[in-house]
């Protein structure tokens, strides 16, 4: 039954892509919700995460294969990959740190947005200079890349790992925002920055924390996404566009909105490509236009 096979595969691919998009969009939405800064360098941080993750994981894997081959074999490339993801988190966090230090001296939404765009172009060019123009991917560790049968169909284990990682990220962010002291302060800051400052909380430091958190998460998503989707120059703005689609559909600043928006975009993209390949891009942008026309704030966004 090739059509059944195709349907399940398309559904799973849509869910996997949606899961990755959720992780990408949640960092984006977190930063926007609190700071009202539309970070157009978000896609560039994703791409940088991919490149840094690639270099760190291949370097560590090669070193390990040469010096302790037995351990390298046993870990199945897991050490290199894990360190790649960690390095991507650090790279993303560092870019966010630099961006926050730059942006706090710039006032006005337009000026801040343009600054993030300038940073995006700079990072993109630096990546091209360092890593060249060829598409790259990270090697998935053996332990999480074995095929798994789903509804009778073998599916790449790594893609299931991506779904699991997105679910964990969602739960983690939920606990952070709704069950922790930092989360209470972040939500209060989304409501009213001035009053958060007026009760003695250093809002500049809060912004920095959230910016670094968002940057690190985006860097990680670059390494994790880059393990099954090839990345290259141009991926930065592709990812930014899709992240914008997700938050426009789901509603900026809402975690629930990001998850629903990401699933919608992932499924439309996957089914569009599989069944209506000529229409795929129109289906996606058409959805965005419909949402903008009838519910400007997105499905779960706050009207203001």
């Amino acid at each position: 039954m090739p059509s059944y096979f195709q349907f399940v595969l398309t559904l799973m691919n849509g869910l996997t892509y949606g899961a990755l998009l959720f992780v990408i969009a949640s960092g984006f939405t977190l930063v926007f919700g609190l700071m009202r800064v539309l970070n157009l360098s978000h896609g560039a941080i994703y791409l940088l995460g991919g490149y840094v993750g690639y270099t760190a994981s291949t370097t560590v894997s090669q070193l390990l294969a040469r010096s302790v081959p037995a351990l390298h074999q046993a870990a199945g490339g897991g050490f290199g990959w894990l360190l790649g993801v960690l390095a991507a988190a650090v790279a993303g966090g560092l870019v966010a740190l630099v961006l926050q230090r730059l942006i706090r001296n710039v006032h006005g939404d337009l000026a801040q947005t343009l600054l993030t765009l300038g940073l995006a172009i700079t990072i993109g060019d630096l990546c091209l200079w360092i890593w060249g123009g060829l598409p790259l991917t990270l090697d998935a560790p053996d332990a999480i890349s074995q095929p798994v049968r789903i509804a009778g169909i073998p599916y790449p284990g790594y893609r299931l790992f991506v779904i699991g990682f997105a679910v964990l990220t969602g739960v983690g962010l939920y606990l952070l925002l709704f069950r922790s002291q930092l989360g209470r302060i972040i939500r209060a800051g989304v409501d009213n920055r001035e009053m958060v400052a007026a009760v003695g909380i250093n809002i500049d430091r809060l912004f920095l924390t959230v910016f670094i958190l968002g940057g690190a998460l985006t860097g990680v998503s670059g390494a994790i996404g880059g393990t099954y989707l090839a990345f290259q120059p141009g991926t930065d703005f592709d990812i930014l566009t899709v992240a914008l689609f997700v938050v426009v559909i789901g509603g900026l600043g809402s975690l629930l909105g990001s998850s629903v928006g990401a699933l919608i975009v992932g499924l439309i993209d996957s089914f569009g490509r599989a069944y209506f390949s000529e229409l795929a891009i129109f289906l996606l942008s058409g959805t965005v236009i419909l949402v903008l026309a009838f519910r400007t704030q997105g499905l779960f966004g706050r009207a203001n």
Partner: peptide, 23 residues
């Protein structure tokens, strides 16, 4: 900055209350 003023021991109950609706 406001948080320094608050830490110096000034409490502020603003006009219009300005509570945080999400909390």
């Amino acid at each position: 900055p406001p948080h320094r003023v608050a830490l110096e021991g000034v409490g502020y109950v603003p006009q219009g209350r300005e509570i945080f609706p999400s909390l």
